[in-house]
Design a protein around this nucleic acid. Structure first.
Lengths: 234, 234
DNA sequence: CGATTGCAGATTGTCAACAATCTTTGCGAT
DNA sequence: ATCGCAAAGATTGTTGACAATCTGCAATCG
């Protein structure tokens, strides 16, 4: 008898969900520019589906806050101004330090710390190879692992949304160069503070890390309203 | 020249958004029972619209986590088991204590504390009048005010979702009676700790409050899988 | 000459019918 | 009696067409 290998279950996902993911990535990586209008007809035909499923996908993105709906006028990719970026990083600080605290207090740091060390090791490897894309991906992965380690589905869910916006930010505002070693070190600090169970050190490490990133982002782009596009009505 | 009087703006909201809100309330207050299947045709006709807009509304609720979509099988109201309720209160603790900290650190406590005192005064009034429904509403209002006071749109958004789930919980699991005065006092403690800028006292007050509520919820219902109602909405 | 109004063109909002899939029910064989 | 199988019924998924609304342009009037 043949042992059943792992099969991917058929049609596990709705069309709307599939389209949502693709659109989300398009927004994350700037293929759909912030402020730009999303034409239902054009997108539907480019996905090879009709407008029904596409509109369903759009509603998901609206609920997620990535897309703004202006009734009878259209759908627009959310723009992030300075104030919103500040809020984004503030919210990330809240969630990630809470995750760290939960790891220390509830989960017992051991399994999470193993994963976190793997994560910053991957960053180190990418940094040494000079691969900035891989470094950025590993950076994102670190933060995902951090929150995942807390074992809270709700925290994770909320954080995922914030990370999409973060990626969107970095894509739109072209993250300026920064010393890779320093970048890796900041993550090491966070992970090792958790390993030692030192809450206050962890929190200051995270706050510092976020402030560092935030400062670079908002200094790089001085305009309050980033890019001007045919904006939706207020 | 005639000064234009204030007009209410016309049709500012999409149909999907309108339906979403009504469905959300139906779920919150148990008119749509946890675990029950949501028939598109039945709901659409009861809203007086076709299945298109209704499906769009459903996708929003799916994204929000209130409704589970099983492809080709149907949509089901999310059930909360004990583990999820624990996670819900854990996430609320994270967000609300973070909100308190932001109030103390960033906002300056004064305006928020005024609102918080008004909120628990309303609870006091309801408690003295013996109006348990008003007390519960005022209780929810207090927590909303707390998070709103932090001035973070993202925190507020995330918290709103959690509060919908909280209400859903209380509705489904019939919150057992508890001494109203004690309930008011716990909120007073939180507000006054913020007024004094005492972070650690605030955090322990919130944690205590959440543990109190959580303990009552999961002790009241011992079954791991809570209620499974057979019928959809009347 | 400038502001306003009416008119295309395009886009979104809605619907009802059709196709695909799942669940249930009943029959027959082992 | 239980299991397997197949058809029927019901529900979800998708589509194309139609109606309502908005935007931009041009003609008109003061």
């Amino acid at each position: 008898m043949t042992a059943t290998p792992t099969f991917q279950q058929v049609r596990r996902e709705s069309t709307a969900s599939l389209i949502t993911r693709q659109l989300r990535e398009g927004i994350m990586y700037g293929h759909l520019a912030p402020g730009s209008q999303l034409s239902e007809a054009a997108l539907a035909s480019s996905f090879g589906v009709s407008r029904g499923p596409l509109r369903e996908a759009m509603q998901r993105l609206v609920q997620e806050g990535l897309v703004l709906a202006s009734p009878n006028r259209g759908l627009f990719v959310k723009e992030l101004d300075q104030e919103e970026i500040r809020d984004l990083y503030s919210a990330r600080t809240v969630l990630e330090s809470a995750a760290g605290r939960l790891i220390i207090r509830e989960q017992g740091p051991v399994p999470a710390v193993v994963a976190l060390r793997e994560a910053y090791d991957a960053m180190q490897t990418a940094a040494e190879a000079g691969d900035l894309t891989a470094l950025s991906d590993a950076d994102f992965h670190f933060h995902e692992v951090l929150v995942a380690g807390a074992g809270s589905p709700r925290l994770r869910r909320m954080h995922d949304t914030l990370m999409v916006e973060t990626r969107m930010c970095l894509t739109a505002l072209q993250d300026t160069y920064r010393d890779p070693e320093e970048q890796v070190q900041e993550h090491k600090d966070i992970a090792e503070a958790i390993a030692e169970g030192d809450e206050s050190r962890m929190m200051s490490a995270i706050e510092e890390h976020m402030n560092e990133a935030l400062t670079r982002l908002i200094s790089g782009q001085s305009t309050p309203e980033p890019v001007s596009h045919p904006a939706p009505a207020p």
